[in-house]
Computed example of a mutant assay.
Amino acid sequence: MRKLSYVLLLLSLISCKNKSSVFEVKINHVSKNIIDELKHLKEEETNFSGLLYKDEKYEVRKSCSGEWGGTVYFKNRQNNVIHYAAATCPVSVNKINGKYYVSNSLAHMQGFSEILEISDPEKMEITKKIPVYHPDIITREYESESTLGTKKILDTTRVLIISSFVYNKKLYSIISGIDGTKTTISELKNNRFETVTELPEKIFYSEPIIVKKAENDLELYFQHPQKGIMKLHDNKIQITYYEK
């Protein structure tokens, strides 16, 4: 009996070891200056524009006042009515099966992250305007305190969500420890993060510039402590380090 148990355990370990990751990660190095890539970016196409998501019905924007709060805004593109709710601070908005998922993160003190589920933005509170967004502009007088129409499905500390994306109708997040030493791609599963793929350490020690081309097509430009670009398309991840 003991021998059988040992064999079953061994087979289990072999199976786990041979189990391939959902994502394929490739890393390379180039002798180029990252500035040459950054100067071709248009601010309105990046996360620094304040625009997080757009579909046929809504344009979704953000504001953030750090520890004083943040807000996510859903502007109805048909009637221009703006719905909003508290979200500190939005980094990504994704849509799966008709529901919107707002990923929030803040690197204040020990750092925290949360994910909100919004089934119907029309049930959120209404506001008259969206404040001009700029990382250096404090907008706390406008920040919403309402949770109407939102449902918090994940709440964690010492973890920062860099960005979230959709693959095979599942929500994945690129997350990093507050000290930046561990970076992973993790799946939202049973209201918690489950690590799927580990990435190199200290990629996103500071906030990257993000260009979102589609739900499953991202480019993340990082500059500290190392410089490079992480490109994600479907389940393929290419990390290129720039060494000039």
Rank of each mutant, 00 (worst) to 15 (best):
E219D: 10
V93L: 14
G69S: 04
K39H: 04
P131K: 10
S20Q: 15
A87E: 10
A86I: 01
A214W: 04
T139R: 04
G50H: 14
D120K: 13
T147A: 01
F222L: 09
N216A: 12
A214H: 14
I137G: 00
C64K: 14
N94C: 09
K3E: 15
P131Y: 06
Y172Q: 04
P131T: 07
Q110C: 00
I115N: 09
N191H: 11
E198P: 08
E114Q: 05
F74E: 05
F23N: 03
E215W: 09
A214T: 03
F112M: 03
V211F: 06
V91H: 13
S186G: 07
T156K: 09
I137C: 01
E44D: 13
S20M: 08
Y73K: 11
N28D: 15
I162C: 06
G228R: 09
L116G: 03
H108D: 15
T183E: 11
K244D: 13
V30G: 02
T147M: 12
F165A: 07
I162W: 11
N168L: 15
E198I: 09
E45Q: 09
E37D: 12
E219F: 06
G111H: 05
E43P: 02
T127K: 12
H40M: 05
S49A: 10
R192H: 05
K95V: 11
H233P: 00
T157H: 10
K75G: 01
S65R: 07
F193P: 01
Y241R: 12
G98W: 07
S206D: 15
I210M: 06
S65E: 01
I161T: 07
Y172C: 07
F23P: 06
Y142T: 00
E37N: 04
T183S: 06
G66T: 14
G69Y: 07
H40F: 05
E45F: 03
L52C: 02
E37P: 00
P135R: 12
S20C: 07
A107Y: 15
T139P: 08
I237N: 00
H134Y: 02
H233D: 11
I130G: 01
S105Y: 12
N79I: 14
I126C: 08
T139G: 02
I174G: 14
C64M: 15
N76T: 03
K3S: 13
I174Q: 07
V91I: 15
D234K: 15
N80S: 15
G111N: 09
I185W: 13
I96Q: 07
S186T: 06
L220S: 02
T197Y: 01
Y58H: 02
L232N: 08
N168C: 13
S186I: 08
K169L: 15
S163Q: 14
Q78C: 01
E194M: 05
K123W: 04
E243W: 04
K39W: 07
T127Q: 09
L218A: 14
Y221C: 11
I174C: 07
T127F: 01
N47S: 14
H83Q: 12
G111C: 04
I126M: 06
R2G: 11
S163F: 05
K99E: 10
V25Q: 09
L41E: 11
I161H: 01
K62Y: 02
E243R: 10
V91G: 09
L220T: 06
C64V: 10
Y101C: 04
I229E: 00
E143A: 08
E45C: 02
V81F: 13
